[in-house]
Amino acid sequence: MKLTELSTKKALNKAYRLVKPKPEQVKTFKAGLITLLGQIEDKESEENVKIHLIDFLKNTFYHPDYLIATKGKTDFVINTGKDANTSAGVMFEVKKPTNKADMITRQNLNAKAMHKLLLYYLRERLKHNNNLTHLVITNIYDWFIFDAQDFERLFFKNTQLKKDYEAWQQGQKTSTNTNLFYKEIAKPFIAQLEEEITFTYFNLKDFEKPLRNASKAADSEFISLLKILSPVHLLKLPFTNDSNSLDKRFYAALLHLIGQEEVKKGNKNLIRWKPAGKHNQDSLLENIYVDLSYIIHNPSIQPLQRQTLQDPILKGKVLFCRDFYVVLNHKTEKIMLADFGMGLTEAAFAPIAQVNPKVFLFNARPK
């Protein structure tokens, strides 16, 4: 097997390399990583190592949008969504730092950690989960990250390997013990592989010095590490590197400010006025009115005027007040009223000439 090792920077999507993380993301990641490294004792159990690692990933990136939990015999997975019914996206095999015998190395991937990960991968993939994105082997310090597409190419598409796995799974071998799969199926199969396998490797100890350095210059040394462990990379999420793209929190605040909301209809996202009962009295929508008296001398505006007065929300924001400038320069008030009233009933005219102005003046009056 030909091994190709990538650094954290080279493993990243070229466009994603250009994306600058937000200061609060860097701060949270840095604090979380310092906490993680401070919690690890070389002699503690793999279960404790796993718990610390899950907490780190949850607190820095994944909670509450992506569920991290054990699944079957797999140490743990990162799901593609927040619920247990979403697919596993990233699979983890975790070893304690002192377990050198089972851990893979940069020169040798044919060790028990890989055999176990291969077993869990085949189980998951044969359940028709085609949403796997990455597979990870780590002992907290050493990290090996594999693209699921390589596992698909090397393992899942190999007919003989799947045949041997299914025969073992169905009790057609001399034993259904996992050691048989590890030693007599996975190990010899990996040993005879001639294809290339690529993996991302890093050691967290290499980042301890910049982590404990308070300068912003030092932060740049672990930005690629932050991105490698982020949902964008591990779950292969879409992203934008456009500096002019709209921030999600700003977008939500903007919709709230103008009295609108985004709703999903089918496969489309639609923006609409908030329905009755959900209005925010401090929004711009609730405090903006339009006075038609200056523009209604123009006949071309009348179709839009009638359409506006049919809208259940906008009709309460239309005013008709006498505009001396219009009367003086365009039409007499009598003619203007006659033109404006064409197509409008008295019941439709009364709100914009009497009711709405009173509401407007009442709201605008200083307290």
Rank of each mutant, 00 (worst) to 15 (best):
T86F: 02
L118N: 01
F146L: 06
Q310Y: 04
L284R: 05
P275Q: 04
P97C: 03
P238T: 10
K162L: 14
N139E: 11
K100L: 02
T35P: 02
N85C: 04
S243F: 08
I185R: 05
N298M: 13
I185K: 07
K315I: 01
K265F: 10
G266P: 10
N48V: 11
F56Y: 12
Q160C: 04
N129I: 13
F56P: 07
K236H: 10
T176L: 12
E208R: 12
H279G: 09
G316C: 01
A31I: 06
K50D: 02
E44D: 09
A347Q: 14
N85Y: 06
L33V: 08
K236F: 03
C321T: 11
Y16F: 12
T200E: 03
A111Y: 03
H115N: 01
I190L: 12
H297P: 04
L119K: 09
S87A: 07
Q310C: 06
V49C: 13
N48K: 09
D164C: 03
T4R: 06
S293W: 04
A31T: 13
M336W: 01
K278R: 15
D42A: 07
S87V: 05
K112V: 08
V359C: 01
T70H: 10
L12T: 02
K14L: 09
K162H: 10
T159N: 06
V232P: 03
Q39I: 00
F76Y: 10
G72R: 09
A276E: 15
E333R: 11
L135D: 02
L3Q: 01
K95G: 02
A217N: 15
A350R: 14
F222A: 14
L237I: 00
F349M: 14
N158K: 06
L226F: 14
I54A: 11
K205W: 10
K43T: 10
F340E: 00
K334A: 09
A113K: 01
L225A: 10
I40M: 04
E47H: 08
S175Q: 14
K315T: 08
K331V: 02
C321A: 01
A350C: 00
P238C: 08
K216T: 15
N99V: 01
A338Y: 07
R106D: 00
L18Y: 00
E152R: 05
